[in-house]
């Protein structure tokens, strides 16, 4: 088939446009790439402090023990006459003796009591001290762990950020590569679409489906059925949809069956010609 002059001019114009567009796209892409519009590096170290609980305040010290002042003995009473005074002295001495003894006993008891109290207070203080030390140790450990976790999270985030950045860059590179290869393959496809290879591929598929179509008696001229066939590389037919059919149930069955019977379809000599989607029209000419 020879193309008409207008076709050729159209092709040339389109081709120029396409190439201009390609160069434009590449330039634009290169410009975009050069512009430091990549994600700002400051974002990379953005971090929030995770340690939200301050270390627990140390417990207030218990009041110091306050020893009670020793009890003073009562002052001696005044003396009277000799005998009486003697007696009185003796009595007084005796009484004083007794009083002293008593006071000493009281003193001793008080001391003992005080000692016991001091002992108890000391024990309590020691216990409190131990608890305080323990709490401080725990708080310190917790703070350490939190600091470590925060540091790790930050490191992770940084790593992620870097990976993300790398990925974006890779994707952008991939897109550009894809675009380039797409344009290249489009050009190739453009070339092969009108080549004998395409005609040959169509003829092969046509022959294959024609051979698979056992035409029912009701498939006469005027009957027209359209199918969408989906094939996967290798030619296996995975899906058949009857898009429209003015034939009867037998015709419908026959064309659908033909599509499946034709599987696998022949492969094109040029892989660029492969297309997963094929439209097949059954239109008996007699």
């Amino acid at each position: 088939m020879s193309e008409r002059r207008s076709d050729r001019i159209l092709s040339i114009v389109l081709s120029i446009l396409i190439h201009a567009a390609i160069v434009g796209a590449l330039l634009w892409g290169w410009w975009q790439y050069r512009q430091p519009t990549v994600t700002a590096p400051s974002l990379a170290i953005e971090a929030t402090v995770v340690r939200d609980a301050p270390p627990q305040a140390a417990p207030s010290a218990p009041p110091a023990p306050n020893p009670a002042p020793p009890e003073n003995p009562p002052p001696p009473p005044p003396a009277h006459d000799e005998h009486a005074e003697q007696q009185a002295r003796e009595e007084r001495a005796h009484a004083e003796q007794e009083a002293r003894q008593k006071a000493q006993e009281q003193e001793r008891a008080a001391q003992e009591k005080r000692a016991a109290e001091e002992q108890a207070e000391r024990a309590a203080a020691e216990k409190a001290q131990a608890a305080r030390a323990e709490a401080e140790r725990a708080a310190a450990a917790k703070a350490d762990a939190e600091r470590a976790a925060a540091a790790k999270a930050e490191a992770d985030r940084k790593a992620q950020q870097l990976a993300q950045q790398r990925k974006l860059e890779q994707e952008r590179a991939q897109r550009e590569a894809d675009l380039r290869s797409q344009l290249a393959s489009e050009e190739h496809l453009n070339a092969v679409q009108s080549s004998p290879a395409k005609a040959e591929y169509l003829a092969l598929i046509t022959a294959r489906i024609n051979r698979a179509w056992i035409r029912p008696s009701s498939a006469r001229a005027g009957v027209k059925c359209s199918l969408h066939i989906t094939q996967i590389p290798g030619g296996e037919i995975t899906h058949v949809v009857v898009a429209g059919c003015n034939g009867d149930e037998a015709v419908r069955q026959s064309v659908e069956t033909a599509a499946y019977r034709a599987s696998p379809l022949p492969a094109p000599s040029d892989p660029a010609l492969f297309d997963p989607n094929i439209d097949v029209t059954f239109a008996p000419d007699e």
Binding site: L179, L189, I205, T206, W213, D275, D279, V280, P284
Partner: peptide
């Protein structure tokens, strides 16, 4: 500059005979 899927022409087949 978008990654649009290529607009491949669908293969068009016409069957007029059958067997």
């Amino acid at each position: 500059g978008l990654g649009v899927a290529p607009a491949h022409a669908e293969l068009q087949i016409l069957i007029t005979k059958g067997v």
